[in-house]
Amino acid sequence: MNIFRFAGDMTHLISILVLLLKIYATKSCAGISLKTQELYALVFVTRYLDLFTDFISVYNSVMKVVFILTSSAIVWCMRRHRIVKRSYDQALDTFRHLFLVLGCLVLALIVHDKFTFQEVFWAFSIYLEAVAILPQLVLLQRSGNVDNLTGQYVFFLGAYRAFYILNWIYRYLTEQHFRLWISCISGLVQTALYADFFYYYYISWKNNSKLQLPS
């Protein structure tokens, strides 16, 4: 494992912990899209179907369990926690996320490495992760402004994407048989979706003003 991959995993983990701590500390999930969080939980569950069949390392196995548990905890809080669920912006979070799920499932059935249960669901999870941020971006756009912690959450998610791209470049240059095209192309699509958000994040930071997204 190279330093970029590790930095990517850590910023990914930090982004999830920032969100969980924000929800826990403020007892509020205002500005957070439940649909995006449900999609991420689904991404982790379908990608880590190999948890009990293929062992890579203790690090990998522990991180997989942590990602499944933390993302499920966020969904649980937003849906079931007595106080937290009151602050959920249900009226603004109207993205049809089922269409994303179906679209990614169809794509995974067409484009995959091998036609096996695990490989199709692995490809599905990669495609779904690329577009899972869309309901969150739509919610931010509708609510007009972004509080600091939500901004930091998206910032760390973006850092994770950037580190993973550096990791793929590094692996492509140093490993003979590195050919993860499904990951790389989906990863670039995902990063492009963040690039737009990052632009406005940077503008608001530079002007020291509240983050405003164009409608």
């Binding site: 890579i56 990602f67 692995w122």
Partner: peptide, 10 residues
């Protein structure tokens, strides 16, 4: 590692 079906990333 790095083969397509090995999935050694998270």
């Amino acid at each position: 590692g790095g083969n397509v079906s090995e999935h050694d990333e998270l």
